[in-house]
Design a protein around this nucleic acid. Structure first.
Lengths: 244, 244
DNA sequence: CCGTCTATTTTTGTATACAACAAGCAATGT
DNA sequence: ACATTGCTTGTTGTATACAAAAATAGACGG
């Protein structure tokens, strides 16, 4: 909230150094702002992200915005169409399946190691995340719920101690959030079950193999709540539609 | 080869449009040029990549180079130090272990699916890659051997039909190449064994589980040939060294 | 009244200019 | 002789200016 005030606002050419935050840090904040907005569905898939508009909102020039958009594009949260600019990625049905298959492989594969590594502090953090998610869900705050769910899975992956794999899982979770936005049925919402809490219990007791199985079922269940069908945008067959 | 001629050379301010290739395509070519040079160890870890120099070499302005460097940084092939510029990433020992652990999980996990998907054409491609690698190895052409080895593993991963996972494997292979450059013993070189050929045979016969086991051993063997020890760069204890 | 062509406007792509920072070097003082 | 400090130089960070390409709207002809 406070940063907002700093970010927007005056940008007299010389006053650049006056800010407390370093330049790179400001970029990081802006990156996260946009990233969060996408993950929390405040920016919906397909939404256009004009450089000029973003530059004005955050009080930096287009150069910085472009850098950030490029980063988001590499993480597949936004799509950069040449000469058309940036928009929030709308995952295809195929991508959706791929992402869930990838999560299935990596997240399940990580469980045994996580079961070996958990300690008191981690369990506490996981519980908090899980509780926050449930609370948000009950309040009907979809944005927060999605955010906490992604955080839960990411946090879990991090416990295995492999930063490379954890980062991969994080990205998959972000993309999952986009998939939910596109293919999720209005009623259902992501990880609504009690699975997360059960998962924590299993891991705490060192039952890694069972945790892996549960995680597998959990991911399959989430994917099953989706209506992953490609609504063909390009070349809708008019003959098929009108001459039937 | 032809593009090379176009890329270097004159860059009269107005001649920008004269090129046959589209702008984005040229960027892709430059990206690949640098990426290849890193993967094939023609640019060694730690090598500095000055924007100005690269801009001149490829005949575009620093803006384009920065974009490319940023992309390479996100793929962890180059490291961007604030105010110090870009250099070829020197993986830490920890990163090295992480990358191999990740490959272990993903590449092995992919084998059953690959065994299900292989067809005649794929087998032929894989054999070619494997042969080229062996040939390069015999000729002592390390660059080509490393390249083909990475291509082999990437191609294999692609066969499973999951582009997301395949891309992840590709990146891991690239990073593995860097790891080899830093921690590889001069004598040994990557995948020197007959494993690749054996792998193809197993997959062709649909023995996915056995292929997974072999892949596991293969990766462990490669990692075992490395001398992964952190040579502490910062703060070498001079007292310890000279006053012993 | 509708379709097409053109002009305008909007938006991105690229280069360059300028300012800030880090590093190396020299000079001076202790 | 050594350390510290200030200057000079090289390199990156940021903004802006300009050019090219879409999208849009308007005019003209059928």
């Amino acid at each position: 909230m406070n940063q907002r005030q700093d970010l927007v606002g005056q940008r007299a050419p010389g006053s650049r150094r006056g800010k407390g935050g370093d330049g790179a840090e400001r970029h990081e904040i802006i990156y996260r702002s946009i990233s969060d907005a996408i993950i929390e569905h405040r920016l919906k898939p397909g939404a256009r992200l004009r450089e000029d508009a973003l530059a004005e909102v955050f009080g930096i020039s287009r150069t910085g915005i472009r850098k950030i958009l490029q980063r988001l594009a590499l993480e597949q949260l936004v799509t950069l169409t040449p000469r058309r600019g940036a928009s929030v990625t709308r995952p295809t049905a195929e991508e959706a399946h791929e992402v869930f298959a990838a999560r299935q492989m990596v997240e399940c594969g990580l469980m045994p190691e996580v079961a070996r590594c958990v300690d008191e502090a981690s369990v506490k953090t996981l519980h908090e995340l899980s509780d926050q998610e449930q609370k948000a869900l009950r309040k009907g705050d979809h944005s927060a719920a999605i955010r906490h769910s992604a955080d839960f899975h990411t946090c879990l992956a991090r416990l295995a101690g492999n930063a490379t794999l954890a980062e991969f899982v994080e990205r998959l979770c972000f993309r999952s959030s986009l998939i939910l936005a596109v293919y999720g049925k209005p009623g259902h919402l992501g990880c609504e079950t009690h699975d997360h809490a059960t998962l924590i219990t299993l891991l705490k007791e060192g039952r890694g193999q069972e945790a892996a199985v549960l995680m597998g079922n959990h991911l399959r269940a989430v994917e099953a709540t989706l209506a992953i069908v490609e609504e063909d945008q390009e070349a809708p067959d008019l003959h098929q539609i009108f001459l039937s």
